[in-house]
């Protein structure tokens, strides 16, 4: 009885699936523009979006990856002088900056250089601002989302704390995006004239819908003055800030790799010993 009912249920599900299958196949077969692979008709996005970012070649990549602290400091400088005008870093605290190789005194000075930490005037109770201390997190770039939208053509500049982990491609994506601004290709405009980049947006083939609200932030060599002799080309600035954002998103990367190295060695040895114990205990039992 169970088996008869089961067979009927099974055939019912399979039958409904067969109908759905025929309809799906029919839909694909009769479509004037076959779209079996993409599900969407050809568009500027499907044809001109660069899905795979270019390799930023960072030292933090890979299983044995380590930070290049000099590069992190340069990246922080780019963030502070360029990105921070619009983008917050709200999960990162000034005290974390010791991870970039700064001394505690330097961190204190960096924190104090931010004089817009929200506070309360102790005499009047009115909202006020004060200088930062190492325990503070980076201040917001805008007081709230409405202010952010108002200042940025109705787009909210996202927080950058986790940017390199919140996008496919990570640091490579950030690096490619920053260096990927270009004029719209003639082929694109010829094939999809309606996809012309609207005023106020900027064409970037690494951005999912090709038109990004952020104007090119790194425009010319020397926009940031590096003190360590590195040439501040657009490419270097983009790579350095990408490296810095790997650190903000994953400040424990080096510790993690270090612990992991010891954990793997330890477990490898324990497994070998455990295997020996197992073979030893079973030596007289054929199995």
């Amino acid at each position: 009885m169970v088996r008869w009912i089961a067979a009927l249920v099974g055939l019912a599900f399979a039958g409904v699936l067969a109908i759905a299958l025929v309809i799906t196949v029919w839909g694909v077969a009769t479509d004037s523009t076959p779209k079996i692979w993409t599900g969407a008709p050809k568009s500027a996005e499907t044809e001109f979006h660069h899905e795979h970012p270019r390799d930023a070649g960072l030292s933090s990549a890979g299983v044995f990856g380590k930070f290049d602290k000099q590069q992190l400091q340069r990246g922080f400088q780019v963030y502070k002088e360029v990105c921070s005008a619009c983008h917050s870093l709200k999960y990162v605290a000034f005290r974390d900056l010791t991870g970039l190789g700064y001394s505690e005194g330097q961190v204190k000075a960096i924190a104090a250089s931010f004089d817009n930490i929200p506070s309360v005037n102790p005499d009047t109770g009115e909202p006020a601002t004060r200088k930062g201390v190492p325990a503070d997190r980076f201040p917001l770039a805008f007081a709230n989302d409405i202010a952010a939208r108002a200042a940025n053509n109705n787009a909210i500049p996202p927080d950058l704390s986790y940017m390199t982990r919140a996008r496919h491609g990570g640091a490579d994506y950030v690096y490619s995006l920053l260096t990927g601004y270009q004029d719209q290709p003639a082929a694109l405009l010829k094939e999809f004239p309606e996809a012309k980049t609207p005023t106020g947006l900027h064409f970037n083939p690494y951005f999912a819908n090709l038109n990004i609200a952020m104007p090119p932030p790194l425009k010319s060599e020397g926009q940031v003055q590096y003190s360590d002799g590195t040439k501040p080309t657009v490419d270097n600035m983009a790579r350095d800030v990408a490296a810095f954002l790997v650190w903000t998103a994953d400040p424990n990367l080096e510790t993690r790799h270090q612990y992991g190295f010891f954990a793997v060695i330890f477990l490898l040895c324990s497994s070998v010993l455990a295997f020996g114990a197992y073979r030893n205990i079973w030596r007289d039992v054929k199995h």
């Binding site: 089961a6 099974g10 599900f13 699936l17 067969a18 759905a20 799906t24 694909v28 079996i36 692979w37």
Partner: peptide, 27 residues
Amino acid sequence: SPADPVYVIVAQVCSAYYFLHFLVILP
């Protein structure tokens, strides 16, 4: 994978096998 037609079609065939396996073929 995204719900593109090719994945939907393959999934429809495989889902049907899944039910047929347990409810018809194995018995």
